[in-house]
């Protein structure tokens, strides 16, 4: 459809924009208004500054960044290794695996947390196997690692590694194999070909996949909620707690505004990286 000419044209263009304005931009504006509202009426930085200065926010921000950065780093390493394996070792399985990766993306993240509870939880498969093999004398710590920092990282790595693999697989598919052959005929060993030819050419895909992964892990909520992690409070968990448990909407809004700002910055970086990807 070419938009109709004349008077109707702006109207036709405006309709979807207006709908999104009401259901998305207007709520965002009210969120900001809530965050910057003073308790006594009017607007100011009072509530906002108080929340941001508190140790709870500080801890949540730190926890969010630590989890997101760790999970992203592991996702990048694991995703690159698997993508390279798929491309150079099991080439025939590549298409099947690419499809499986797509399927994984349709999987809700919190289910990974639930599955891991059965696997590594306090009464999960691995602990039961350990106990029935070694007996109670060698019992591991009462609480599984799953309910802390590394549990969250494991769940996020499980869920988000495919997100990193997708751009990598796409980039690997367009890399000219004769480049690798020429590099090897010039005397470079496989490790050197990887380091000097492949990885430099994969940098845009690594940046794109990594920044998307960082964005999604920073915003991840379902995994931490369902896993029942009590001592790891990230920004989304803090927003949820303030709003649902404490009904403190202004505080929740203030944290949310920070979280949104952080995400938008990352999203911008991600779009920039995407534009630099070939094709």
């Amino acid at each position: 459809m070419r938009a109709p000419r004349g008077l109707w044209r702006p109207v036709v263009i405006a309709v979807p924009f207006a709908v999104l304005g009401v259901v998305f931009l207007y709520p965002l504006a009210l969120l900001a208004a809530e965050a910057f509202a003073n308790p006594g009426g009017g607007y100011g930085l009072g509530t906002f500054a108080a929340i941001l200065a508190g140790p709870a926010f500080h801890d949540a921000l730190l926890a969010t960044l630590r989890i997101a950065l760790t999970a992203t780093a592991v996702c990048l390493l694991l995703g690159s290794a698997l993508a390279l394996l798929v491309r150079f070792v099991a080439f025939r399985g590549a298409r099947t695996l690419a499809r499986m990766v797509d399927v994984y993306l349709a999987f809700p993240s919190f289910l990974v947390a639930l599955s891991l509870t059965f696997l590594y939880g306090n009464s999960g498969f691995v602990r039961s196997l350990w106990l029935s093999t070694f007996g109670f004398a060698a019992a591991p710590a009462a609480r599984s690692f799953l309910y802390g920092f590394w549990g969250v990282v494991l769940a996020e790595v499980t869920y988000y590694t495919p997100f990193v693999m997708r751009p990598l697989l796409a980039a690997l598919e367009v890399i000219d194999r004769s480049q690798l052959e020429v590099a090897s005929s010039l005397g470079e060993r496989p490790w050197g070909v990887l380091r000097r030819v492949l990885i430099p050419e994969l940098v845009p895909a690594l940046i794109a996949g990594g920044s998307l992964c960082l964005l999604l892990t920073m915003n991840e909520f379902g995994i931490i909620l369902v896993m029942g992690v009590k001592n790891v409070i990230t920004l989304p968990m803090m927003i949820y707690g303030k709003a649902i448990d404490e009904f403190d909407y202004p505080a929740a809004s203030a944290v949310a505004i920070c979280n949104v700002a952080l995400s938008l910055a990352l999203y911008f970086a991600y779009r920039q990286a995407l534009e630099r990807m070939p094709q």
Binding site: S178, E181, V182, S184, S185, L186, G187, E188, R189, P190
Partner: peptide, 10 residues
Amino acid sequence: PYARGLGLVV
């Protein structure tokens, strides 16, 4: 290939 030392042009 890397041990053969031949020049390759494609």
